[in-house]
Amino acid sequence: MSLLEVKNCTIRYQNGTSAVNNVSFSVEKGEIVSLVGESGSGKTTMVRAILGLLPPGGKVTEGEIILDGRNLLSLSEREQEELRGKDIAMIFQDVGASMDPIKLIKSQYVEAIRTHERISREESYDKATDMLKRMHLTDANRVMASYPFELSGGMKQRVGIAMGMTAQPKLLLADEPTSALDVTIQAQVVHELRELRDKYGATIILVTHNMGVASYLSDKIGVMKTSQMVEFGTRDEIIIDPKEQYTKDLIDAVPKMGGNRFAR
């Protein structure tokens, strides 16, 4: 049985427009699955629905989202809250913006751990530093004693991933986790994500517009276009042997180092 199964999911807004239309896909344990597509294709809305945090007015009108045998759509508000952070964690494009700017990382992190686990502050602190070290933030104590603005974008992103992974969620959702970063830092974060899966067996759904990153990280890729999933398959099926013209175009459009130049 798959860890996560999305079946014929349709998400509509109050005014009737659909953001996601009849989308199905499944994620096995220990897999990295990428949702790729251009802006407005519905990929972010899809993962938000899994997290149970659709923007106001949005609603899953049809279909099922099943995590480990539980239909997430039939959960109560409280059960959903419990689910978030414990079973499902999310990393956003700009982690810095989702942090409290006037609180030390230490207190935010420890607080986050203690909302899901009944352990002492000291234990939480140790757990946090341990997790930060796994994210290759070697000077974990200094990071813990910093304010968000004192950290660089890449560090914040790694703190965000560490925070998301502390509770060892069944599923990690990453919404454009590298898009706001410089290329060399992006490579570091991609490396971190890869290690999470290889070393710790994490299951990750990655939303990205960067085909290169998706191609490097994913076991499976779903291509989305105007609220629909045009193609879903293993990484090689999508990248090497795409069936849909749209997927081919998308791959061709990515600037490549050895590719043709427009300028003469």
Binding site: T184, A187, S215, R235, K256
Partner: peptide, 10 residues
């Protein structure tokens, strides 16, 4: 080295 090519080796 930081560029992820679409046809990279995983």
């Amino acid at each position: 080295d930081s560029i992820f090519d679409v046809h990279c080796d995983q």
